[in-house]
Amino acid sequence: MKNHNILKNLCNVVFVAGSGNFWLKENHIGDDNSFLYRFYRFVLFSIYGFMTILEILAAVIGDFPDDEQSDAVTFAVSHTIVMIKIFSVIYRKELVKTLNRNMVRVCEIYETKTLMEEQYRIMKINVIAYFVTVYGSAAFFIIAGARKMREGSHFITIVTYWPGHDDDTGIATVFRIFTTVVLCVMMVTMVSIDSFAMVYLIMYKYKFITLRHYFEELRKEFDEASKSSLELASDKLTQGLVDGIEMHKKLLRLSRDIDRSFGTVMALQVCLSSGSAVSLLLHLALSKELTFVVTMKILFFGVALFFLLALFVCNAGEITYQASLLADSIFYCGWYACPSQSAPRRNIRQLVLLAVAQAQRPIVMKAFNMLELTYGTFISVVRGTYSVFTLIYAQNT
């Protein structure tokens, strides 16, 4: 599937989820300035915001049992960060639209069907795995709430300031069920935004793979053309190098736009994964009586947090790796077999020197323009999280 179709389908999902129209063509997917859509988005995010405020109040001044208080803190922190992530992307809607256009156009004519199929398969695996992990975690929260109801208590998934723990009235039960539905709907919006960032990282990685294949094809074409005319083959190779350098420059500019568009999403995910994981591990370690369902609820939630972080960081790290391979492909394009060129022509050796020097500068995706997203970052976050957990655990035992 072409990048144009992938981004269009993704923008359609984001539009339905209430975040607006991010497609590069106005009103092609839908009109997010229409009264009905603005009303729909206002109601949707008002409900999200109201529920998050109630969660924060429950975490700060609520009077609940230890397990529910822990859930209140977890959801209050998580959903606050989720809301910030969503609004950070909505705020940069015009930039994302421009990014969509540029991402589609760069290297588009050199993208092969095989490579696009591989890219689409990787995207599907990443998004589906994340979706299953997130809703698997939600399922265990719902099962845990239903189990409480079977044991004589009330059904509860989201802990909010109202209703209180002792409130078992009909309206309280309806509200608890309503917040559970809101949670499931909110996760659709969250997954759509997170998937947006994830798909961009994967797509950007394959742009570098496409460019690398382009330079490798230049060498094959040069070898074939040089059999009939070395001079014409050299001219064609020189022009191909110029085009490749231009594409590389455009790709480098895209990294800044990706950071500006989705850097907040990825940076906050680092904070969310690390902070929430410490809280969940402490709850798991310090609680003496945990049922299987509650244990799985905590574990699944922690796995979902770190799984998304891994998807962000590892895909970003793969960009750095693929970009690092570009210098070799440029160097071995066949320039050394070209004859010396007269002054009016471009000096292919200088072009190669310029291109290789540009490709050797490491491309490292960053969040907030300071937090490097690499494989090492993921390991550091995991180690740091475990270190904080062991320190706090030692002080409480």
Score class of each variant (00 low, 15 high):
237 L>K: 14
46 S>K: 09
221 E>H: 13
365 M>N: 10
167 D>P: 15
155 F>S: 00
24 L>D: 00
165 H>G: 02
85 K>I: 14
162 W>I: 13
336 Y>W: 10
77 V>D: 03
296 M>K: 11
166 D>R: 02
261 S>P: 12
56 I>E: 04
281 L>V: 14
19 S>D: 09
31 D>V: 01
169 T>V: 08
25 K>W: 14
280 L>T: 05
224 E>M: 01
187 M>V: 01
138 A>M: 02
270 V>E: 14
299 L>K: 07
123 M>W: 12
236 K>Y: 02
308 L>G: 11
369 N>Y: 15
184 C>H: 04
303 V>T: 15
323 A>S: 05
160 T>C: 07
320 T>W: 01
70 S>V: 02
287 S>Q: 00
82 V>H: 07
310 A>L: 13
315 N>R: 08
121 R>K: 15
338 C>Y: 06
282 L>Q: 07
119 Q>R: 05
32 D>N: 12
147 R>V: 04
68 E>T: 00
103 M>W: 14
118 E>S: 13
262 F>E: 03
311 L>H: 05
261 S>E: 04
44 L>H: 14
291 T>P: 03
199 V>G: 02
151 E>K: 06
28 H>M: 12
326 L>A: 03
136 G>Q: 11
94 E>H: 05
147 R>M: 05
330 I>G: 05
279 S>I: 08
267 A>E: 06
29 I>G: 13
268 L>V: 05
231 E>M: 15
353 L>W: 14
208 F>D: 15
150 R>Y: 03
155 F>M: 00
292 F>I: 02
172 A>Q: 00
263 G>R: 11
380 S>K: 11
227 K>H: 09
22 F>E: 02
75 F>Q: 13
26 E>R: 07
275 G>D: 07
325 L>M: 15
371 L>Q: 13
360 Q>M: 10
120 Y>K: 15
103 M>L: 11
273 S>P: 07
94 E>D: 05
21 N>R: 11
375 Y>K: 15
128 I>G: 00
257 D>C: 02
203 M>G: 07
142 I>V: 03
331 F>M: 09
148 K>R: 02
283 H>S: 01
47 I>N: 01
322 Q>K: 10
224 E>H: 12
217 E>K: 15
80 T>K: 04
332 Y>T: 13
55 E>P: 08
232 L>E: 15
228 S>G: 08
136 G>Y: 03
100 N>G: 04
280 L>V: 04
362 P>F: 04
320 T>P: 09
206 Y>K: 01
381 V>W: 06
270 V>D: 13
176 R>D: 09
176 R>L: 06
98 T>F: 13
211 L>R: 14
298 I>K: 11
355 A>S: 15
344 P>G: 10
350 Q>N: 06
253 R>L: 08
347 N>W: 05
126 N>A: 08
246 E>F: 05
57 L>G: 01
119 Q>D: 00
244 G>R: 04
224 E>S: 03
